[in-house]
Design a protein around this nucleic acid. Structure first.
Lengths: 335, 335
DNA sequence: CATAAATCTTTACGCGAGTAAAATATAAAT
DNA sequence: ATTTATATTTTACTCGCGTAAAGATTTATG
């Protein structure tokens, strides 16, 4: 920077000021610096820049499972917004593994991020470790709510969305059974189950839960394996199945196909299947999957906005703010 | 570090030495440092550490499109191997966008990586910009080969794999037509097309290419839209379709289902569909997708090994090395 | 036990910036 | 043309660690 300042005819501290905020220097100086920049394309050394800063321009983004296109999509949206705001996103996936989640937070700590956006694993998360991290950096949680952690939570209105699809299914055919994992990794699933039960009761139907075993994040595999079993044992009290999420539904659709069951609305269909989330692949299943969409565009935007506000205001917020976005019914071929 | 050295009773330079290589200090000192470490959990400031280094312990990983579970999977494998080798992976997705790819390389340049693993976008990549980057850091290319770029290339044996599936399809039914994008973003597609044509000729069949319009990385969408059109216009000279990749095939399967065509091998099936890659979702389509698997476990391992070797040996390699791994036929329900 | 070899301590400097304070220059307002 | 407010230059110090050199100490070897 010393040399660059010399060739551009400006003092080094002013050049430094320019790089921290181009608007903070006089227009004529800015133009001289930018002219020199074109000729020499100098860039401040990122390590030297960050060494003395208490906090950097880095923003951590932690998702539970990046191989799930749902999270890949939401991460992509977040990345873009973070970059537009002049920050540097660092994307980390926990790969469904709590130890990895802690590793991710540890390595984020090292880079002194200005803030962190995290979608925790959920049930298997090491709560106290996450809580400890939240004390070190402004943290916004999204997708998966761990009560009390993080300065704010932005997510999907599971209650409204589940009501929406349960009502739709009841209105258009047999009341659904609810297909889910016995121990869902994610708290959203619990909300969905409870809302399913409550809505069924409200509508005067008997709720029926099919809780299948299975661990990890291989939902399609679980949906396929357990779906095959459920179909084979004729243990379905209804021809309509509401899955806790689209990935289970994708596996279940595959199982139904293999079992020779035709899924859909029309005559000749043995089964209706619905999901939840509007997974990127839901429109390409056979049949296409009826589901409730999460508004992940708005979830991403609100999450980033909230974090940026936290970063700008030095004082921590008075209370933890929770924002939920409503789901939208997506009617396709499967139900 | 000054303070930590004081409380552990060791001089700062020795502590510094310890962090760079714990094995470089005497056993007794190492134990004293590690004892102190447990009590005070000190960690060197990553920015200060890297400031004076010509190259860091960072390894860049650039993939063309992270929302594609195929790349998410391979990235996950690479990440793990890189961490095990004591490096720090920085994962970046180009989101199918050449400008983003350049941005990614630019931001990697800033962090002075020890090496970079890149799967370039392919056709739309800014070759000269990528070439310029490769001069700055040891670079291993994988998945998508840009002739002459990078110190080495590790990828899939498209020729062998395509021969395998074309022969299989010819042996078990009507010779296939080849379904692909007119302007595939990725050079692998060109190899697959050429091998399809050559193999068909060799087996005494007329090759037939269905080259559909469509841009970007929304392959399922293209497969669905164009598949629907192809089916509707009855422009198929064969009941067997070999798709250039699984994602196109997934879209095509969905199109066939919507059109009421039963896909598969058995009696009553109107169509056979095969793909290429063994995409993570290929086993959950309806019917499940017959395809040729890329050995991405080995591709990931070899890529990382090659890069590490490059990093260790200061001298650049004499010549660019290319490694291809054979594909495996995965017979499922669709063909 | 003497000697050599390996480690460690001390001292000192450098990396590439951020930043504060005082002096100076420039632009805007009177 | 002055005064005033704003921006820039100079100077100097800081961050946290890598690293080199010289001297002191420990460990291995004969």
């Amino acid at each position: 920077m010393e040399d660059f300042a010399a060739v551009s005819g400006i003092s080094r501290p002013t050049v430094s000021k320019y790089f921290n905020d181009p608007g903070s220097v006089r227009k004529s100086t800015r133009e001289r610096i930018e002219a020199a920049l074109e000729r020499y394309d100098f860039r401040p050394n990122i390590y030297a820049v960050n060494q003395n800063r208490r906090l950097t321009k880095n923003v951590g983004v932690v998702v539970p499972y990046l191989a799930d296109p749902f999270f890949a999509e939401i991460a992509r949206n977040i990345e873009r917004l973070v970059i537009e705001a002049g920050y540097r996103p660092i994307l980390l996936s926990s790969h469904g593994n709590p130890a990895q989640e802690i590793d991710n937070l540890d390595s984020l700590r090292q880079i002194k991020p200005a803030g962190v956006l995290i979608a925790p694993l959920g049930r298997s998360s090491d709560k106290s470790a996450v809580a400890a991290f939240c004390k070190d950096a402004p943290t916004v949680h999204f997708d998966s709510n761990i009560e009390g952690l993080g300065e704010a939570f932005i997510g999907h209105n599971n209650t409204q969305a589940t009501e929406l699809i349960v009502e739709y299914l009841c209105r258009t055919g047999e009341p659904p059974v609810f297909f889910e994992m016995r121990l869902p990794p994610n708290p959203n699933a619990i909300k969905r189950r409870n809302t399913y039960v409550a809505t069924m009761n409200r509508l005067g139907h008997d709720p029926h839960l099919i809780q299948v075993p299975g661990d990890g994040w291989e939902f399609e595999e679980i949906g396929f394996r357990e779906g095959t079993r459920v179909i084979a044992t004729h243990s379905l009290p209804s021809n309509t199945i509401l899955c806790s999420n689209d990935r289970l539904a994708i596996g279940l659709l595959s199982a139904a196909y293999e079992a020779g069951l035709r899924v859909g609305l029309g005559a000749g269909c043995a089964l209706r299947v619905a999901g939840h989330d509007d997974h990127p692949f839901a429109r390409y299943t056979s049949p296409t999957l009826t589901t409730v969409a999460q508004d992940y565009g708005r979830i991403a935007r609100k999450s980033v906005e909230t974090l940026l506000k936290l970063i700008d205001s030095d004082a921590p917020p008075t209370r933890r703010e929770t924002t939920l976005f409503d789901g939208t019914l997506i009617m396709r071929g499967s139900a």
